[in-house]
Design a protein around this nucleic acid. Sequence first.
DNA 1: GCTAATTTTGCACAGGTATGCAAACGGTGG
DNA 2: CCACCGTTTGCATACCTGTGCAAAATTAGC
Lengths: 338, 338
Amino acid sequence: MPERKVTSLDVAAKAGVSQSAVSRVFTPGASVSKRMAEKVRAAADELGYRPNVLARSLITGRSRIIGLVVAYLENQFYPDALERLSNALQEQGYHILIFMASGTGEGVDQVIDELLDYQVDGIITASVGMTDEIAARCDAAGIPVVLFNRGQEDLRLSEVTSDNLAGARKIAEFLVAGGHKRIGHITGWTGSSTGRDREAGFRAGLAEAGAAPIIVRDGHYRRAEAAAAAREMVEIAEVDAIFVGNDHMAFAVMDELRFSMGLSVPKDVSIVGYDDVPLAAWPAYQLTTLRQPSGRMVDATVSALLDRIASPDTAPRKIAIDGPLIVRASATVPEGWE
Amino acid sequence: MPERKVTSLDVAAKAGVSQSAVSRVFTPGASVSKRMAEKVRAAADELGYRPNVLARSLITGRSRIIGLVVAYLENQFYPDALERLSNALQEQGYHILIFMASGTGEGVDQVIDELLDYQVDGIITASVGMTDEIAARCDAAGIPVVLFNRGQEDLRLSEVTSDNLAGARKIAEFLVAGGHKRIGHITGWTGSSTGRDREAGFRAGLAEAGAAPIIVRDGHYRRAEAAAAAREMVEIAEVDAIFVGNDHMAFAVMDELRFSMGLSVPKDVSIVGYDDVPLAAWPAYQLTTLRQPSGRMVDATVSALLDRIASPDTAPRKIAIDGPLIVRASATVPEGWE
DNA sequence: GCTAATTTTGCACAGGTATGCAAACGGTGG
DNA sequence: CCACCGTTTGCATACCTGTGCAAAATTAGC
């Protein structure tokens, strides 16, 4: 039970030095002699002193807080990314302040205001619709923004995604090579760049093989809509393969086909997802999917953000990281597929 | 692009009033006349002024930041709780600063120090082993702590859990009523109160029916260990039912039994979990499980914490919320079970 | 219209730290 | 022993806001 607050002045008094000396000891790269450092640290340890981050932030203008704007954590990809992001930032002395954009949602303005109120040093947005507006306005306010797993036309913003075009193209090749003739696609929300890019890449890949999707529906990243779309595709379009815009929806599709419609995956219909969340590897699904290398995406996000914080003139980056197709059992494997 | 920072002094100058007047306008419950408020708000809006939370925190001593210490987000229960917690706190004007205790982990001390550095107003711990030490030390430092989904002997700490004893007892009754004779139990980590309480409740429930578990193993909340334990239980102890300490492990157990061992759930072995995470309702698992009412748990957690922050003398609370057994298809349903 | 009671406003300071500047210090070479 | 130079240290101030206190302004009461 320390007497409430112990300040740098207390330490200074105890060590018989000035407050600024104490400050310098706790400021990396400041000019302090060995003897001084020892004296101060001894006094500090004895009193249990630690610098007050808030007071420090007030004067340095940096809070060492990163705002993370996130809409929903139901898709396992995001908790996973959150955990990695937080660990990576913690190693650099930053911490994540969470802003949920999903709630009753007074909307974007509310979130933006709160973000600015806390003087966050940088912002990461993930899985959120109104990304564009948040990002643009915060960037205008001079706070570096990185869009995680979502793209954006605006060249002033940094973004980190997987290479959705190339990834979806690989999936197209894979499905064609597997001998599928009637291929459907349930897109992620087409209001998101991720959804659009995957669709475009997929169409391009099919086109290269002289094919085209026979049916395309927007799944809005929601299980129920994806399941309904899948049912329609099977009943009406008689598809033999579906590329689903992310794993989260793909699980719903597999459930619908197997348990509601009594079909076999992949015998009746091949399913391919996108993300490779941990669940995709579980025996119940064994989902063939394109891996988003979340480790590398997180690293890229963190370094893009921190670089930008360190020197604000750094040009914004648009990074797309390539990921491998992970072949499991939810889709027919082409003969001789390496 | 606002000229970097606009302070209360700028607003005061523009409105032709004192800085304290501006401060009062933005402080709920302060004494300000209508005319003054209008003038100030007009000037503030025009300049795009918003109070600096950090400076405010420095003087009021409250940061409106809640530290959330969390170890792993793989178990879907926690992202779900995180989302709810964040939304609930946001409504009260608080935000969550994340502290991952899972990382390379310089250990507890590191985390505690960082928590204190940020002057958090309160702390919630979830899914983390060294809870006891963190909680005790932070509480000693005068910061209210609530343990979420974990209990603790120490009477000075608040905690919110589901009623693990009663819940596990219900499961015991259910399995006995289902005619199971050779019942196994894979505990959550027995180093956690949650794990211990569920085991105790389960044993008590069986004992009441004159039964007892024929084999008990510690699953440590990990998929791999749970799967291995399940295999052992089937091969060596020939169980006909397993109560698994949480859903996260239960999924692994079902996968192991069905896909590695070729058994039928529930025909060969009944499986019951605990938590009722969203996944439990998916057709692939249809897991019978005891629901932890995370909505109510979150509400209780938030109000316990905020009450404690508002008046530090409030007695710590230990709250256990009752949850219903959700009967699905992973365990034999007793005849005439309502 | 005048005084008393009440509300509103400004003043000045505090909260805990970082940092530019000048003074003090320590060592070197002659 | 002195002049000189590089390193340490202390002083004072700034960061931005909230709040106790006293002065000013408003309202009430007659």
